[in-house]
Write a protein that binds this DNA or RNA. Structure first.
Lengths: 123, 123
DNA sequence: TGCGAAACTGGCCGGGTGGCCAGTCCTTAT
DNA sequence: ATAAGGACTGGCCACCCGGCCAGTTTCGCA
């Protein structure tokens, strides 16, 4: 019955590696001031550790490609991107084409999805 | 010089609320077996707590819209989606149109990005 | 029993998209 | 000097996308 005004910090684990999840659960279980969420309970924060399987190969994108990619993720059309970056629509298409190649995507939607998955961009 | 075979679990914090980040950093700092990552160091896991800003209002999507949305996120064209779901391209466009409305998106790329942000789909 | 919502389909059309070709300029590496 | 790669631009063209119109069927709910 402490008079502590702040309740425990409730955490959830989203960890692919079972062994790591176990170690963390054990370590955190004995820390006063925080605890793991009960089933169904909504946590205030989440500990994530995804399999870094496909991560290692980070695609080498040029700065300009990253510029275009970011605007693509915002749903911008080639025309809008061209205006934003002060370049021609043709140049935008050129960069988009390069992105489709490097990201192994079939279209701009696929490119954004792939980039997000690989952590190249943040949605 | 302990003979412990397992090194510390290295964590990073990605927390919007500075106060919460502080509390967590303090709590975790005194736990043996884990520590926060040094600047530039790559962590094995990340503790995330995003502002639950737009989260509360979960968009009401029909099952069919979810089907279409999932395939859109895979970069599928309307034609491919139509074949997958055994419906006509017109029907696909119909559902895509509904998705653009509900997700307040300007195009399919934007729709997928919005859906991913709102947790409607997982990339 | 009627009414709305969801799912489905068609035609039409302007504008967007992506692929292909070719070319220039500039900077860095060999 | 001589590549080599990045950024940039143009034209051309088949195809896709999204918006508009209109229509049918099926289901559950009042």
């Amino acid at each position: 019955m402490s008079a502590d005004t702040t309740p425990d910090i409730v955490l959830t684990l989203e960890i692919d590696d079972p062994a790591l999840a176990d170690r963390l659960a054990t370590l955190l279980g004995s820390v006063a001031g925080l605890r793991l969420a009960a089933p169904g309970e909504t946590a205030i924060a989440t500990i994530v550790a995804r399999d870094p399987r496909v991560m290692p190969e980070d695609i080498a994108l040029t700065q300009r490609e990253l510029d275009v990619l970011a605007l693509m993720a915002e749903g911008a059309s080639n025309k809008m991107i061209a205006r934003q970056l002060n370049i021609s629509v043709h140049t935008v298409k050129f960069h988009v084409g390069s992105l489709l190649d490097k990201l192994d995507a079939t279209g701009r939607t696929d490119a954004v999805a792939h980039a997000a998955r690989r952590g190249v961009i943040e949605l």
